[in-house]
Structure formats: structure tokens, C-alpha cells
């Protein structure tokens, strides 16, 4: 019972304080589950990160589900940790949406968004740039896949279809 409560509390904190999306949250999760609670070792944690990258879905959800299970040996633990990590989002993001649509016509809110749009373009570009590294680009084939997908994506080919195709290509090429 105590472990369930501790899990809930830990992942609630992770959901609240994790600024800057998936990868920035990893350090926070490591601190909670490895250093503070000792639910797993650093090696196990690294494995989870690898598994998270090899499976679909948001990394935080993946971590919460996995740690929740290993720490309690039950699906309930998984569900509690996953719910806890989503809870702040459910509250914060729906409040934000409510606020934005209520004040959308306010001239200051409108002006703020005019300033935000070019910055958002830069932020997404930044996310793309940080992913151009040796983990994602192992050889010239990676560059070819990148180029083909880039062109297809420019001509609006469905991204899910492109991902599946790249996976199949990877399987046969490597």
C-alpha cells in the first residue's frame, strides 16, 4: 500500500515539474525512481529509456508504466503511476485551453500569440536539430532514408505510412 502511494506521489511530481518535454523529464524520473526510492538500478533505468525509444508513445508514459509494474509487480501499480503522471496535464492543459479560447479575442493575448508563432517554429526546429546525432544517423543509409522521407513529407505523404515504410526498409537493409 505504501509503495502505491509513493508511486502516485513520485509520478505526480514528475508530471508537474517536468519542463521541456520527454527527454528533459528523464533526469527527474531517474532522481525519483533510482536515487530516492531505489525502485530500480541505474542500469535498469537505462534499459527502460532504450525500451521507451524502441516502442511507440510518450516516454513519460512508458517510464511510468514500466516502473509502476516493476516496483509493485502488479498492473495496478502500472495504472497508478501512469494516471499520476497524466493528472497534472489533464488539469493544466484543459485549464490552459479554456483560458485561451475565452480570451482569444483579447488584443494582448492576440499580440502575445503573434510574437509566439515565430518562436514556436524555432523551437520545433531546435527539437529536430538536436536529434541529428550519431544515435539516429549511423551511416549513409540513414541519410538516404532521411532525404527520401523529407521529400515525401514535403509532398504530404502520410507520416504513419512513412514510418512503417522506413521500419521495413531498415529491416531489409541492415
Amino acid at each position: 500500500m505504501m509503495t502505491f502511494l509513493a508511486l502516485f506521489w513520485s509520478f505526480l511530481k514528475i508530471g508537474i515539474f517536468g519542463f521541456g518535454g520527454g527527454y528533459a523529464i528523464l533526469a527527474l524520473i531517474e532522481n525519483e525512481v533510482v536515487d530516492i526510492h531505489g525502485w530500480m538500478t541505474t542500469t535498469e533505468f537505462t534499459d527502460i529509456v532504450a525500451i521507451s525509444q524502441a516502442t511507440p508513445g510518450p516516454i513519460v508514459i512508458n517510464c511510468a508504466t514500466y516502473v509502476g509494474y516493476t516496483a509493485t509487480d502488479s498492473i495496478i501499480g502500472s495504472a497508478i503511476a501512469t494516471f499520476a503522471v497524466c493528472l497534472p496535464s489533464l488539469i493544466l492543459a484543459s485549464l490552459a485551453a479554456r483560458f485561451i479560447y475565452k480570451f482569444r479575442d483579447n488584443k494582448y493575448v492576440d499580440a502575445a500569440f503573434k510574437g509566439l508563432r515565430p518562436a514556436v517554429v524555432g523551437l520545433i526546429l531546435a527539437a529536430g536539430l538536436t536529434l541529428i546525432n550519431h544515435d539516429n544517423f549511423t551511416d549513409y543509409i540513414s541519410i538516404i532514408i532521411f532525404a527520401i522521407v523529407a521529400v515525401c513529407s514535403y509532398f504530404k505523404v502520410n507520416p504513419i505510412f512513412l514510418l512503417m515504410l522506413s521500419g521495413i526498409a531498415g529491416y531489409f537493409i541492415y
Binding site: 544517423f137 512513412l162 531498415g170 541492415y174
Partner: peptide, 10 residues
């Protein structure tokens, strides 16, 4: 190995 560069392009 096939999917990762595709994700970056997307």
C-alpha cells in the same frame, strides 16, 4: 535503424 532518421525528417 530505419525509423530513427525518418522521425528526424518528419
Amino acid at each position: 535503424k530505419g525509423i530513427r532518421p525518418a522521425v528526424v525528417a518528419l
